[in-house]
Structures are given as C-alpha cells and as structure tokens.
Design a protein around this nucleic acid. Structure first.
Length: 323
DNA sequence: AAGTGGAGCAACCGCGTTTAG
DNA sequence: GCTAAACGCGGTTGCTCCACT
C-alpha cells in the first residue's frame, strides 16, 4: 500500500527563487502554516516540489532567521560544537538560535575550516596535526575525555530525538499537561554544558522553553547513582539501555577523577586536571578569540593549540554546579 | 575594459530514517 | 508487519559577485 504518490515531478521549476515565489510561499504559510509540504506547492500556487519549498522556507524565508555576519561568540560556539559533534549541522544549529544548519555549514566550509587549517589544526579531528608536543603538555587525557563527551552528546541527541517523538505521540494521544510536574521532556535532556538555576522560577521557566538541556553533570551523575528522577523516568530508562553502556563507564571515570582530584570541583576540576599549566580559562578565552579572528598566526603554534583546546574544554561548563 | 580566479551562498542531490496506509 | 512516499540531513554543485591582473 504505502502513501499516495508524491508530487508530479514533471514541469516543476528548479533554481533560484523569484520574489513572486517567495511572496506566495510566505503568504501561504503565514495564513495556513506549512502543513504537508507535499501538498503545499499546489495549494500555494507554486510550480515547485514540496522539498524545494521546505528548503526555501527553512533556510531563507522563516521570520526567526538571523542573517548576516557571524559574531565571535557564534564562531567560537560553532567550532566548539563541531569538535564535539562533527558535521552534525542540525544539532549544532539547535545551539545557535536564529541560524540555520545550512548557513552554519556554509560558514564552516568557507571560513572556519580554513582558519583552523591555518592554525595547524585538523578541522576534522580538531587535533593539532603534530600532537606529540601537546601530549607532553598533559592534554592527551583531555582529548580522551573529549572523545567520551562526544559520545555522550551524540547519544543525548539521539535521546532528544526519541523523546521529541514520544512527546509528539503523547501530545496527540492525551490532552497536553506538559508542565504538571514542573518538567517537560526537555528538562530531562541532560548535558554538562548548562548550569542549573534551582530556586529561580523565571529562569526555570526559561529553561523549560529552551531547546537545550538544563541539568548539570553532577545531576546527571546523581541520576545514574540514585536511579531516580523528578517527574519522569524516561531519561533514566534511556540511559540504562544496553547501548548506552558507555555512559556508565564515563560516569565512573568522572567519579574516579573527581575523588582523586577533590570533590566539589565538578567538571571544572576534571577538565583542569589534565592541564599541567592550571591556568584560568576565562581570561585566556578572550585571547584565543582575538588570535583566531586575527587570522591565526602560526608563529605561536603551540600556544594557539593549547588555547584552542582550552577553549573547547572551557565550553563544557567551567562553573561548578549551583545547588 | 576584459579576463580570470576565488569567495560566498542558495539550492539541488542523494541517502538514511520516519511514517502513513 | 510490510511497503513506499515523505521527510530531514549532510554533501556537493553552480551561480553571482568582487578583487586582482
């Protein structure tokens, strides 16, 4: 059986969109929403396929899109997220409100990738092309931790997608009561990048609206240790699934490191543990940004690389969790 | 002024995943 | 449960603009 046939591909226009087409698409979506992309072109009076319409809308016409140059903050975020997530542009785009995955992808390919190459950093692995000197600086442990984190984030995104689907089903099956526990499914999507703001209702509300996650690493660890979670057990179930075994090993690794290096330092302590220089991140972060924007002077090769990695590590919540 | 090459970016293509029937 | 269309994503292409020769 399957679905009814797709839109007739004969006689459909391709190539750049005209102003008239844009206006038609905009007007239609503003009035009716996009609904089914497949049927949209005909309803909107466009001789385009639904795929083309969707692309035009998501990459160009959407009103919540910010266009123009990327600022330093955005650049840094892209690089840091790329180090963690690789070429998962849609995932990266969720951390950059108002930017599309296509725009980020283009910006990476035309600007940022070249800049990293100039600095002597492999844009695929985000490792220096000659890693030995950095290892001697004590950064190899951080690299392995980063690898764990990439796995973690990867699985988190998968869980996020699954929860989104689940919540969609629930939304249609039951009357929405998303906040009855004070948590939506988004609250359950954990990461180490965000601080908690318990005790502040406004901020909590903001978190609930946010597409990014809200629970600190310490909370995550508690989740695993105590096997409980306020509001729902969905997250925990995901974590405890066999394919997420790496999660437990990662948690144990962190626990071990934390015990050795002293409690209450949380992630900051952990991330700093492998850095024999033990410098302040926040101060140097700005330096790094300046160097990058200046075009990457390779004369400071090792210093650049250290700053670069520091920057990635500091992206992962440098502040101790707030309880 | 014309030709050339590079940068920037919108849009297409192909493939894997999801979902309607 | 199966099939095939729809969807979404990442890679790639090709067009336009601009600087340089």
């Amino acid at each position: 059986m399957g679905r009814s046939p797709c839109c007739d591909k004969l006689g459909l226009k391709k190539g750049p969109w005209t102003q008239e087409e844009d206006q038609k698409l905009l007007a239609y979506i503003e009035e009716h929403g996009h609904g089914s992309w497949r049927s949209l072109p005909e309803k909107a009076g466009l001789h385009r396929c639904g795929k083309s319409c969707r692309l035009r809308w998501t990459n160009y016409l959407r009103p919540d899109i910010k266009r123009g140059k990327f600022n330093l903050q955005e650049e840094q975020t892209i690089i840091q997220l790329h180090a963690l997530l690789g070429n998962r542009w849609s995932a990266i785009a969720t951390h950059l409100p108002k930017r599309t995955d296509n725009e980020i992808k283009n910006y990476w390919n035309t600007h940022l990738k070249k800049r990293l190459v100039k600095m002597g950093i492999d844009p695929v692995t985000h490792k220096p092309k000659n890693e030995a000197p950095l290892s001697s600086l004590g950064l190899s442990k951080n690299a392995s931790i980063l690898s764990h984190m990439a796995q973690w984030e990867s699985a988190r995104l998968e869980a996020e997608a699954r929860l989104a689907r689940e919540s969609k089903i629930l939304h249609y099956q039951t009357k929405p009561s998303s906040h009855h526990h004070g948590f939506t499914h988004k609250t359950l999507l954990t990461t180490w990048t965000c601080k908690t703001n318990q005790g502040n209702a406004d901020q909590q509300q903001q978190q609930l609206e946010s597409s990014t996650s809200t629970v600190s690493f310490s909370e995550m660890k508690d989740l695993s240790a105590k096997t409980e979670f306020v509001g729902s057990s969905t997250c925990l179930n995901l974590i405890k699934e066999p394919e997420n075994d790496w999660f437990n090993s990662t948690v144990h690794e962190f626990e071990a490191t934390e015990m050795a290096g002293g409690v209450d330092e949380g992630f900051t302590g952990l991330m700093l543990a492998g850095d024999s220089l033990g410098r302040s991140f926040s101060a140097e972060k700005n330096e790094t940004v300046k160097e990058w924007s200046g075009g990457g002077d390779c004369s400071n090769y090792y210093e650049d690389n250290k700053n670069y990695l520091d920057s990635i590590f500091s992206f992962i919540d440098p502040s101790p969790p707030m309880f």
